[in-house]
Protein backbone atom coordinates (compact mmCIF):
# COMPACT_ATOMS: atom_id res chain seq x y z
CA UNK A 1 0.00 0.00 0.00
CA UNK A 2 2.95 2.38 0.54
CA UNK A 3 5.42 3.51 -2.13
CA UNK A 4 9.03 2.43 -1.91
CA UNK A 5 10.04 5.95 -0.94
CA UNK A 6 7.59 6.00 1.96
CA UNK A 7 8.92 2.68 3.16
CA UNK A 8 12.48 3.87 2.82
CA UNK A 9 11.86 7.04 4.87
CA UNK A 10 9.86 5.04 7.38
CA UNK A 11 12.67 2.53 7.81
CA UNK A 12 15.42 5.10 7.92
CA UNK A 13 13.85 8.35 9.03
CA UNK A 14 16.12 11.39 8.74
CA UNK A 15 16.45 14.04 11.42
CA UNK A 16 14.80 12.22 14.28
CA UNK A 17 15.04 13.81 17.70
CA UNK A 18 14.89 17.28 19.17
CA UNK A 19 17.00 20.44 19.08
CA UNK A 20 18.01 22.05 22.32
CA UNK A 21 17.26 25.76 22.37
CA UNK A 22 15.37 25.49 19.10
CA UNK A 23 14.32 28.77 17.55
CA UNK A 24 10.90 27.40 16.77
CA UNK A 25 8.95 24.44 18.11
CA UNK A 26 5.63 23.27 16.72
CA UNK A 27 3.54 20.57 18.32
CA UNK A 28 0.42 19.42 16.53
CA UNK A 29 -2.10 16.64 16.92
CA UNK A 30 -3.86 14.79 14.16
CA UNK A 31 -7.58 15.34 14.69
CA UNK A 32 -8.47 12.35 12.52
CA UNK A 33 -6.64 9.61 14.36
CA UNK A 34 -5.20 11.30 17.43
CA UNK A 35 -1.51 11.13 16.55
CA UNK A 36 1.12 13.67 17.57
CA UNK A 37 4.06 15.36 15.87
CA UNK A 38 6.62 17.84 17.18
CA UNK A 39 8.88 19.83 14.84
CA UNK A 40 12.05 21.62 16.06
CA UNK A 41 13.72 24.29 13.92
CA UNK A 42 17.08 26.05 14.11
CA UNK A 43 16.80 29.32 12.20
CA UNK A 44 19.58 31.78 11.33
CA UNK A 45 18.62 35.03 9.60
CA UNK A 46 15.33 33.56 8.46
CA UNK A 47 17.08 30.52 6.97
CA UNK A 48 16.27 27.10 8.40
CA UNK A 49 19.63 25.57 9.20
CA UNK A 50 18.42 22.48 11.00
CA UNK A 51 15.17 20.63 11.56
CA UNK A 52 14.31 17.65 13.71
CA UNK A 53 11.09 15.83 14.51
CA UNK A 54 9.42 13.50 16.96
CA UNK A 55 6.35 11.62 15.78
CA UNK A 56 3.87 9.27 17.37
CA UNK A 57 2.00 7.92 14.38
CA UNK A 58 1.77 5.59 11.47
CA UNK A 59 4.31 4.90 8.75
CA UNK A 60 2.88 7.73 6.61
CA UNK A 61 3.22 10.18 9.48
CA UNK A 62 6.82 9.16 10.13
CA UNK A 63 7.77 9.23 6.45
CA UNK A 64 6.18 12.64 5.86
CA UNK A 65 7.89 14.03 8.98
CA UNK A 66 11.21 12.77 7.72
CA UNK A 67 10.69 14.03 4.18
CA UNK A 68 9.53 17.47 5.27
CA UNK A 69 12.60 18.03 7.43
CA UNK A 70 14.70 17.24 4.35
CA UNK A 71 12.67 19.62 2.23
CA UNK A 72 12.88 22.61 4.57
CA UNK A 73 16.51 22.48 5.66
CA UNK A 74 18.37 25.23 3.76
CA UNK A 75 15.16 27.04 2.83
CA UNK A 76 14.10 30.45 4.05
CA UNK A 77 11.15 30.61 6.37
CA UNK A 78 8.96 32.00 3.59
CA UNK A 79 9.97 29.23 1.21
CA UNK A 80 9.26 26.64 3.89
CA UNK A 81 5.79 28.06 4.41
CA UNK A 82 5.01 27.40 0.78
CA UNK A 83 5.57 23.69 1.22
CA UNK A 84 2.21 21.99 1.43
CA UNK A 85 1.27 18.48 2.39
CA UNK A 86 0.82 17.77 -1.32
CA UNK A 87 4.44 18.72 -2.01
CA UNK A 88 5.58 16.35 0.71
CA UNK A 89 3.31 13.53 -0.48
CA UNK A 90 4.54 13.99 -4.05
CA UNK A 91 8.16 13.92 -2.92
CA UNK A 92 7.34 10.52 -1.42
CA UNK A 93 5.83 9.28 -4.70
CA UNK A 94 2.34 9.58 -3.28
CA UNK A 95 0.39 8.35 -0.30
CA UNK A 96 -2.69 6.12 -0.16
CA UNK A 97 -5.80 8.37 -0.08
CA UNK A 98 -6.70 7.26 3.45
CA UNK A 99 -3.24 8.43 4.60
CA UNK A 100 -3.29 11.94 3.14
CA UNK A 101 -4.43 13.33 6.48
CA UNK A 102 -1.12 12.22 8.00
CA UNK A 103 0.82 14.49 5.64
CA UNK A 104 -1.26 17.45 6.83
CA UNK A 105 0.28 16.83 10.22
CA UNK A 106 3.75 17.59 8.86
CA UNK A 107 2.61 20.75 7.10
CA UNK A 108 0.87 21.96 10.24
CA UNK A 109 3.89 21.18 12.41
CA UNK A 110 6.19 23.25 10.17
CA UNK A 111 3.73 26.15 10.26
CA UNK A 112 3.38 25.93 14.01
CA UNK A 113 7.16 25.89 14.48
CA UNK A 114 7.59 28.94 12.22
CA UNK A 115 4.76 30.76 14.01
CA UNK A 116 6.55 30.04 17.25
CA UNK A 117 9.82 31.38 15.82
CA UNK A 118 8.15 34.55 14.54
CA UNK A 119 6.41 35.25 17.80
CA UNK A 120 9.74 34.96 19.58
CA UNK A 121 11.56 37.22 17.10
CA UNK A 122 8.86 39.86 17.34
CA UNK A 123 8.96 40.09 21.10
CA UNK A 124 11.74 42.45 22.16
CA UNK A 125 12.66 40.22 25.07
CA UNK A 126 13.65 37.49 22.69
CA UNK A 127 15.64 39.91 20.59
CA UNK A 128 17.51 41.20 23.56
CA UNK A 129 18.65 37.76 24.58
CA UNK A 130 19.70 36.81 21.05
Amino acid sequence: MYSEKVCEHFRNPRNVGNIENADGVGKVGNPTCGDVMVMYLKIDDDVITDAKFETFGCAAAIATSSMSTELIIGKTVDEALRITNKTVAEALDGLPPIKMHCSVLAEDAIKAAIDDYRSKVKSPMAKATK
Binding site: D35, F56, G57, C58, A59
Partner: peptide, 24 residues
Protein backbone atom coordinates in the same frame (compact mmCIF):
# COMPACT_ATOMS: atom_id res chain seq x y z
CA UNK B 1 4.37 5.70 23.52
CA UNK B 2 4.38 3.79 20.25
CA UNK B 3 1.81 3.56 17.48
CA UNK B 4 0.60 0.13 16.37
CA UNK B 5 0.73 0.41 12.60
CA UNK B 6 4.40 1.38 12.80
CA UNK B 7 5.17 -1.64 14.98
CA UNK B 8 3.15 -3.88 12.68
CA UNK B 9 5.03 -2.72 9.58
CA UNK B 10 8.46 -2.99 11.20
CA UNK B 11 7.54 -6.54 12.25
CA UNK B 12 6.36 -7.20 8.70
CA UNK B 13 9.76 -6.09 7.39
CA UNK B 14 11.14 -8.93 9.55
CA UNK B 15 8.63 -11.35 8.08
CA UNK B 16 6.34 -11.41 11.12
CA UNK B 17 2.58 -10.99 10.61
CA UNK B 18 0.49 -9.57 13.49
CA UNK B 19 -2.41 -7.15 13.87
CA UNK B 20 -3.15 -3.94 15.78
CA UNK B 21 -6.12 -2.07 17.20
CA UNK B 22 -4.59 1.29 16.31
CA UNK B 23 -6.83 3.92 14.74
CA UNK B 24 -4.16 4.55 12.11
Amino acid sequence: YVEGESMLLYLDFEGIAVSTGSAC
